[in-house]
Amino acid sequence: MHEMSLMQSVLEIVEEASRGFTKVKKVFLEIGALSGVDPQAMDFCFDVVMRDTLAEGATLEIIRKPGEGWCMQCSKRVDVSERYDPCPWCGSYQIQVTGGEEMRVKEIEVE
């Protein structure tokens, strides 16, 4: 349920970035597969949190970023869909996550 408080932070960032404009029409978020955030829950919270703000009625666009890592044992780049995934090449769990932890407001469409 921390999606609600994350969305509050999104609103603060959006309000700051949209200063001088009259309406926010679209918000683009980048959410990594390993960020611990449920995009559906974000979607649900979006409308509630944006109500009575410049972004009321705006569309939420979530750009999913896949999880990826570096296997420390075999020195290869690997796809990581879950934190407990072993390296598909050598079976080791010594994987340094290098991508997929993003939680960012990427851009906003305004008028």
């Binding site: 949209s18 404009f21 939680m103 851009e107 305004v110």
Partner: peptide, 24 residues
């Protein structure tokens, strides 16, 4: 110029590139 980033009149996209947890 807009807060250190660019906004474009044509499609009015404002680059934000900010971590949601930046404030925390």
């Amino acid at each position: 110029k807009f807060g250190g980033s660019r906004s474009r009149e044509a499609n009015r996209l404002v680059k934000v590139e900010q971590d949601i947890l930046a404030k925390n």
